[in-house]
Simulated assay, not measured.
Amino acid sequence: MNSRKEQLDAFNRLLDIMDDLREKCPWDRKQTLQSLRHLTIEETYELADAILDNDLEEIKKELGDVLLHIVFYSKIGSEKEAFDIADVANSICDKLIERHPHIYGDVEVSNEEEVKQNWEKIKLKEGKKSVLEGVPKSLPALVKSSRIQEKVAGVGFDWEEPHQVWDKVQEELSELNEEIKNNDSEKIEKEFGDVLFSMINYARFINVNPENALEKTNKKFINRFQYLEKEAKKIGKPLSDMSLAEMDIIWEQSKKFFK
């Protein structure tokens, strides 16, 4: 692997290239903090996909794209005389030192949970009025739900045992089923949301990342359905002309290849 000097030289090279692009490239010159925002979100999702696929070469490339955006934002910040890349790096360094008193101070912790609890307490001391202030409003609902539950658990608002959470899941399912019988669409939606929220909470107790779990299922379904499409094409019969029983035979075959 590269030495620390080589790593710093590579980063310095990126900063020099960013200076050139901002000065000489019409597209790069016109970009703003606002215009880059949606592109950054897209790059982050591409990185997330590469991580799920465990494609190390692709992860390296996507990390480069994300790093470029960080440097880009910092360059724009320096032009506004608001902050530069050094300020960005020092800011996160200061935060990490402040929030890890068990390493840079005299606080003692015995496990990961105590680290998380200290983290949330420190945030409140920094002036946050709520532990939930750190949950971005624009997060997708599933990820937001998971983060909300992690945050409140960090200050002790949590179930004690996994079976208690599972009982809550069963309770919410029962309430959903009752509203389905009553055919009240507004209450059905509410109870369905409660079921999802409780399932996401249960996932935390059994050490499952719900976002990753669902995305892996999405990918599995896509692979199996595309297998179905290819096999249907081989026999020259459109899916729309096939019976569900015919499709199910091929679907079962797909499970041998995509588990």
Rank of each mutant, 00 (worst) to 15 (best):
I200W: 12
I200N: 13
I200Y: 13
N201M: 14
N201S: 14
Y202H: 12
Y202C: 06
A203N: 14
A203S: 15
A203T: 10
R204W: 11
I206K: 10
I206C: 09
I206N: 06
N207F: 12
N207Q: 15
V208R: 13
P210Y: 13
P210D: 10
E211P: 00
E211G: 01
E211Q: 09
E211H: 09
N212G: 02
N212S: 11
A213F: 13
L214M: 10
L214I: 11
L214F: 14
L214D: 03
L214Y: 12
E215L: 10
K216S: 02
K216I: 01
T217Q: 08
N218G: 01
N218M: 01
K219F: 04
K219G: 00
K219L: 06
K220Q: 10
F221I: 10
F221A: 07
F221K: 09
I222S: 03
N223G: 03
N223M: 09
N223T: 03
N223V: 03
R224H: 04
R224M: 06
F225V: 08
F225H: 12
Q226M: 09
Q226I: 04
Q226K: 12
Q226H: 10
Q226W: 04
Y227W: 13
Y227F: 15
L228G: 08
E229P: 00
E229Y: 00
K230V: 00
E231G: 12
E231P: 12
A232Y: 00
A232S: 15
K233Q: 13
K233C: 03
K234R: 15
I235M: 14
I235F: 07
I235C: 04
G236Q: 05
G236A: 08
K237L: 11
S240M: 11
S240F: 09
D241F: 02
M242D: 02
S243I: 01
S243V: 01
S243E: 09
S243G: 12
A245P: 02
E246T: 01
E246F: 02
E246H: 01
